[in-house]
């Protein structure tokens, strides 16, 4: 296990919440349990040594065939110390729920809505969880691996 100042501080504070840690080139990744996600994010934002004050991006990945199926990936940036970290939360396919981090960074609102729209992962505590890119009455979650590229009828033959 390589030494990394940020991951060391994180694993020291939350020894049971961090399931895996990895560093590769200049990227550091930590897999976090979903129950502790909001706690970990608050710590990352408020701790003066870390101060990850910007949420860069949240995205989802569908590993169809593996369990847990979905992975929600958070990219964070600390502007004062110019450091980045990637957090991952794994959720099972039959229970895709993740606590929302909109209480930590307000900018998480729309990326989380997009993951809900595209993958069907629900974010608990989100102020306004509804579809964002597809029409409101669309059925299905397009970025799932079992959703065909051409769409599902009759929505694909609407126009």
């Amino acid at each position: 296990m390589e030494e990394d100042p940020v991951l060391d501080i994180l694993t020291q504070k939350f020894p049971d919440a961090v399931a895996e840690r990895k560093t590769w080139k200049d990227e550091r990744t930590a897999v976090v349990l979903r129950e502790k996600l909001v706690e970990v994010c608050l710590f990352l934002r408020d701790d003066p040594r870390l101060s990850f004050n910007t949420i860069i991006d949240i995205c989802g990945v569908d590993y169809l065939g593996e369990e847990p199926r979905y992975e929600v990936v958070y990219h964070l940036l600390s502007i004062p110390s110019a450091r980045r970290i990637r957090l991952k939360v794994r959720v099972a396919g039959d229970d895709p729920r993740v606590p929302s981090v909109t209480s930590v960074w307000a900018g998480a609102e729309w990326p989380e809505r997009e993951i809900y729209d595209m993958f069907g992962v629900a974010f608990e505590g989100h102020p306004d969880l509804r579809r964002i890119l597809m029409p409101d009455d669309w059925q299905g979650h397009p970025l799932r691996k079992d959703y065909p590229l051409g769409g599902i009828e009759p929505w694909s033959e609407r126009y």
Partner: peptide, 9 residues
């Protein structure tokens, strides 16, 4: 602060 919290870049 608001800008950084919102992910403004």
């Amino acid at each position: 602060e608001d800008g950084m919290n919102l992910g403004l870049t």
